[in-house]
Amino acid sequence: MNIFLSALWAETLKARRSKVLWLTIGASLILPLIGGLFMIILKNPEQARNMGLISVKSQLVGGTADWPNYFDMLLQSIAMAGSILFAFIMAWVFGREFSDHTAKELLALPTPRVAIISAKFVLTAVWMSGLALMIFVIGLGVGAAVDIPGWSLELAWSSFGALMSVALLIFMLMPFVALFASAGRGYLPALGWALFSFVIAQILSLLGWGDWIPWSVPVMRSGMFGPSSIEQLGMHSYILTLVAFTLGVIATLSWWRSADQAK
C-alpha cells in the first residue's frame, strides 16, 4: 500500500504543479456560467435583446427558465464538453511522460509500473469527480443567483445523482484514451481517439444503435437525444460500458508492464 501511496503522491504533485489543473477548473466553471446565462435569457428574452445579449432576430427554443431545465442543461453540457475535458486530462496525465521524455524514468524502479499506472488512474478519477462536483456546486450557486423557479431538494438530489452517473460513465471510457496516449507515446493519438470515438458514437446514437455502444451511453444518459434515449439504455448498455472500462484498464496496464524504450 505504501508503494501505491508513494506513486499517488508523486502523481498528485505533478498534477498540482501543472497549469492543466487550473485550465480544467477554468473550463469547468464555464459550463454552469453558460447555463446561468441561458436562464437569464430565457427568463427575460426582451430584456436580453435590449441588453444585446442575443440578436434581435433570434428565436429562442429550449424551454423555460426553471430548475429542471437548468439541471438538464448542466447534465447535457457535462456529457458533451465533459467528455472532451476528461479526455484532455487523461491524455495529459499519460501523454506528458512521453512529451517530457520522463517515461523511461518509470521503467527501472523498485516501485512496480502497475502501481504507477494505477496511481494515474486513481488521480484522474479523483480529478474528474472533483470537476463534476464543482460544476454541480457552482451550478447551484449560479441557479440561485439567477433566481429561477421550480427548486426542490428532491430534484437537486436526483439531478446530482444523474450528473455524477454521467461523469462516471464518461470516466469509464477514459482508459482507452490512456492506452492511446501510452502506446501512441504522446497526446495526439489519445486526443485523436477521443474525437473519433465521440463523433462515431453520436452518429451511431442517431442511427438507433447507441445503447450497444459504450461511447454513446453518457450522452444518451444525459437525455440529449430526448427522454426516449434514456429509456433505450438497458442493463446491456451499462455492462458493455463496464467491459470497455475493464478492457481499457487491463490493456493500459499490460502495455506498461511490457513497455519498451525501443523507439
Partner: peptide
Amino acid sequence: TAYPELTVRENLEIARRLY
C-alpha cells in the same frame, strides 16, 4: 529528464519516494 514545472527538490522527492 525531469518534470520541468517541478522544482529540483520536488523532482528528487518523487524519485526518493518511488525508490
